[in-house]
Design a binder for these strands. Structure first.
Length: 598
RNA sequence: GCCCCCAUCGUCUAGUGGUCUAGGAUAUCAGGUUCUCAUCCUGAAGACACGGGUUCGAGUCCCGUUGGGGGUACCA
């Protein structure tokens, strides 16, 4: 019985033909822990309730992320001969692949379709750590034929940033993550902004109040701070002192009249609570560690814990995968669920992503938003591949994966418990590699996108035609990010007068050895003026001829030209550079360079 | 302070008691290719935090220490 539940609940690790963790003798340590917790969790009498809720749902259209359909594992082959459910067409199909390990006939009611969600608060662009959370939830939903929901948790009116929801949508779409229910696409459990679901929270809070499981409180922040200070002075953990007589409605009215803040606190039951986490195992928090936390703020908004629990249940979310920062909060959620008579979802808390100093990934350390990586010229699929490896690994030497492969390989049991550090160097290497292997079409689309999100780049301002964009991609082969193209070729698209000469480059390439570089330029100028036609071949022939006749190396000719034309020692191959620049501008820039020696 | 979680090269990780004198990637270093930058190729160096157990045998299981992280909000 227990194994049965466990196996059905496991969303992954089957489709790829691996040994299921329910099998005696082959049960790995991690799986044992996971199995034990899942089994205990399944005892919840209300699990069937979730199934009932879920069963009502009908499929919803996909919102069509960036070319995602083409990324589906159409050719994925699995050891078991199973195919992963094709998410694009069969949301509510029973995830047959999940039962492939072949135990007893599963009870459909005990294996609800997985419903996951990503619930960011709208404070700006999508954070890279949030993107990983979204990715894992998405992967799990997609690979099991489940549903992925996008909900906005905007209950903190102070922190909400107008337009942030649009930015988050844009970032998720760019990554290629789509959602079945949620903001913009709608769904049966909307609205998907918490600020528009106040009735639900108020009703829930009222229920608790009426049942004597919550009560009003009127402390000011100053009073609370003072109490905490006292507790600290006594070296005790602060716990909110529950009054002997719980304030009622009339007390609340009076407090309001007196201008005191009125909040509602949850009456935390005096019992230890165990979270059955599928990554961390069982985590028990003692009753003495939990106090009566606020569920409704003085401004009338629900606090995260309340809204989150109410919505997850209302939306049929049965698997909560989120950062480990929430693990210690989960007992509060479970207590709330019990008070409401809600089922407890499966919990998966994943390790956090830190910066290279081991601190929380913050802006200080460089780009931390998905959008910033987009502007920096990274490929979304590479970013996805990279962040998937933070806290998860497919095993073995495997690192490079397409989205389709991630879908095939992803599983909760391969999730780590250690926080990881975000290594930008490695990301860069990943992108370099991906760029080198990408098709011209992929690079072309990626470059176009980069130009669109970098409107101030000289490359964008130049309004390049498709042929030139393709040429730029070609002559810059070996670039690591699209921004490299600007770095290396941007000078082609600024005015001749806009070229400033890097003193170090001038010194090293033009002035050194008694102005050898300048002399070379002076000698080259009339010959280039006479050169016809102005093509890669003719320029190559000309420069090679000069090298030969003067008995000098390529560098002696190419470098002075490069500095003259770009102001730096960085540019595409010299023939390509001069052709792209064109004859008049090349000559003009050489004259300008010569002029700085006067 | 208190509670919880975690621990393999600098970093991401493989590792499921013997096949581990610990594998891959990235970073680093040394060579090489190249008209610059970047790419690319070859090689080197680099880790089981420490101390106890259990076991014929421990990177792997247990306990402790140390270190790191998270929580302790009218943030999420």
């Amino acid at each position: 019985m227990v194994h049965e539940c466990v196996d059905h609940d496991a969303p992954a690790g089957h489709a790829d033909g691996r040994v299921a963790h329910g099998q005696p003798g082959a049960v790995p340590t991690r799986a044992e822990r996971v199995a034990a917790s899942a089994a205990t969790g399944a005892r919840d009498p209300d699990v069937a309730g979730v199934a009932a809720v879920v069963a009502i749902h009908s499929a919803h259209g996909f919102c069509g992320g960036l070319g995602l359909r083409s990324q589906w594992p159409a050719t994925v082959h699995l050891a078991s001969g199973e195919r992963p459910s094709a998410p694009a067409t069969s949301h509510h199909r029973t995830p047959a692949g999940v039962h492939a390990a072949g135990h007893q006939t599963p009870d459909p009611m005990s294996t609800p379709m997985i419903r996951t969600r990503f619930a960011p608060s709208p404070t700006g662009h999508l954070h890279i750590g949030s993107a990983r959370t979204a990715l894992f939830n998405w992967l799990l939903a997609r690979k099991t034929g489940g549903v992925f929901i996008l909900r906005i948790e905007d209950t903190d009116t102070d922190r909400n940033v107008p337009g942030a929801d649009r930015q988050i949508i844009e970032d998720l779409r760019w990554l290629g993550l789509n959602w079945d229910e949620g903001i913009e696409v709608g769904g049966p459990h909307g609205p998907y902004y918490q600020s528009q679901r106040m009735d639900l929270y108020n009703a829930a809070i009222r229920r608790l109040l009426e049942a004597g499981q919550a009560y009003y409180a009127f402390d000011t922040s100053e009073e609370l701070d003072a109490m905490r200070g006292e507790a600290e002075a006594r070296k005790q953990a602060f716990r909110y002192p529950r009054p002997a007589r719980l304030p009622d409605e009339s007390d609340a009215r009076r407090a309001r009249d007196e201008g005191r803040p009125v909040v509602v606190r949850f009456k935390m039951p005096a019992e230890d609570i165990t979270v059955h986490d599928e990554v961390m195992g069982d985590v028990t928090v003692a009753a003495t560690e939990l106090d009566d936390f606020i569920i409704r703020k003085a401004d009338g908004m629900p606090v995260y814990h309340l809204a989150n629990v109410v919505d997850d249940t209302a939306m049929g979310v049965n698997l909560v995968m989120r950062g480990q920062e929430f693990l210690a909060q989960t007992p509060r959620h479970i207590a709330l669920q019990r008070a409401f008579g809600y089922p407890t979802p499966r919990y998966v808390h994943m390790p956090l992503t830190m910066d290279m100093k081991g601190r929380k990934l913050s802006k200080r350390d460089g780009a931390v938003e998905v959008h910033a990586f987009r502007q920096a010229g990274y490929l979304p699929e590479t970013l996805l591949n990279f962040i998937a490896l933070l806290g998860w690994s497919p095993g073995g030497d495997r690192e490079k994966m397409t989205v389709a492969e991630m879908l095939e390989l992803f599983s909760i049991e391969r999730m780590n418990r250690v926080n990881s550090k975000f290594d930008r160097d490695k990301l860069l290497a990943f992108n370099t590699n991906a760029v080198a292997e990408a098709s011209p079409e992929r690079l072309s689309a990626g470059f176009d996108d980069w130009l669109a999100v970098n409107p101030d780049s000289p490359l964008s301002r130049a309004g390049l035609d498709a042929a030139t964009r393709a040429t730029l991609l070609e002559v810059n082969r070996g670039f690591r990010t699209f921004a490299d193209i600007e770095h290396k070729s941007g000078f082609l698209y600024v005015d001749d007068e806009g070229i400033s000469y890097d003193p170090a480059a001038v010194k090293k390439v033009l002035a050194k050895n008694d102005n050898a570089g300048f002399h070379m330029l002076a000698a080259l100028l009339p010959q280039l003026e006479a050169l016809e036609p102005w093509s890669t071949e003719s320029i190559e022939g000309f420069i090679k001829g000069v090298c030969e006749s003067q008995g000098v190396g390529m560098g002696n000719v190419a470098q002075p030209l490069r500095v003259a034309v770009s102001g730096t020692t960085i540019s595409p191959a010299i023939y390509d550079t001069l052709v792209l620049l064109g004859k008049p501008r090349t000559l003009n820039r050489i004259r300008r360079a010569l002029a700085i020696n006067q």
